[in-house]
Design a protein around this nucleic acid. Structure first.
Lengths: 188, 188
DNA sequence: GTCTATAATTGGATAGAC
DNA sequence: GTCTATCCAATTATAGAC
């Protein structure tokens, strides 16, 4: 085992490089240089560029799901959308490179690892959908009515958060998280 | 002048190829093959790959803006969000490759033509923001209150539409446009 | 486990014929 | 205005030393 976690070093570098140039535009050379390791080490730790980015995306969505789950613990239904939205914005802000990368690649269906990424995407959308459903029921609507809120609404919610978040971080970084949250939720 | 519009042929092929592999992953060779022209013709019609995709993105956002403007004509404030949302979904559905491409590249800030694309992105977000503002006022709120709805809300609205639209077209194509619209707007 | 060196292929772009 | 042929740089991946 390596003295430091080389795998994590490489994954972090891959995120940083791909956030700027996209996955196809990110070269293994530049990733190795950014990580401070030789290119040979990349191929010792990952079978291929595809395998590396499958791992990058898997970890990214996993982190997002975990942040949402953690935020929701013990929160009543009516507060759910705001709290999961805040957790999502927070997670994206903490790693803006990863946010750009996920936004750019989440709907690419041709990759070798598209299936893996799609499951991760779906699990995030499902969590957001559930938050919307819980709030719907807490507002006095029936369970049956809440079931009309599907994963598509979750995907819309996620898209709204990602769109607002990137607009915020890239073009209006002076705004506060609370302000961005208000803009997303008051119109929702 | 060419007998057929070679420029348009090339632009269409570029959209198709880049929708699958991203812009960096789209090779000029494959674009030429898809368009049914020689690679030399690409470079006769466009100065470089960057210039080609600058034109692709410019036309894409222009089409979207035009669709929104056309839909809004003569529509009262309270109906504005639904009508512009429908027009946006319709435009994206009519060219799903372009939708994937715009979603993947809209927040890339390192491109040579990032400034051009950013203006186009901003003009779409502004149009959506205006629709939200008009509905807000039509619902009985003050103009002053409506001004708290900014371009960030427009970006969120666009993100929601793009997220729902791609979820729909890629994974749930059996849904109707009206159904998708309802899912986006009832939770909004 | 990490390095250096290199193989094999593909990429963007250009020159010049027609 | 379009084609074919070609250049050169960059890319993924591998081999083998340490």
């Amino acid at each position: 085992m390596a003295r430091v976690n080389t795998k994590q070093l490489i994954v972090d570098a891959a995120v940083a490089v791909a956030a700027q140039h996209g996955i196809s535009g990110a070269s293994m050379d530049q990733i190795a240089e950014t990580a401070g390791v030789a290119k040979g080490s990349l191929y010792y730790n990952f079978a291929s560029k595809d395998a590396l980015f499958a791992e990058v995306m898997r970890r990214g969505f996993e982190r997002l799901s975990a942040a949402i789950d953690s935020a929701r613990e013990g929160v009543p239904g009516e507060g759910a959308p705001r709290i999961v939205a805040a957790a999502t914005l927070e997670a994206l802000r903490n790693n803006i490179d990863l946010a750009k990368l996920m936004a750019a690649e989440v709907f690419r269906t041709d990759r070798a690892w598209a299936e893996t990424m799609n499951e991760a995407r779906s699990s995030v959308a499902t969590r957001l959908r559930d938050a919307l459903r819980d709030a719907h029921v807490a507002a006095g609507n029936s369970e049956q009515s809440a079931e009309r809120i599907t994963e598509t609404a979750g995907a819309a919610f996620f898209g709204a958060l990602a769109g607002a978040c990137l607009d915020w971080l890239l073009f209006r970084p002076e705004l506060s998280l609370e302000h961005v949250l208000d803009e997303v939720l008051t119109t929702w």
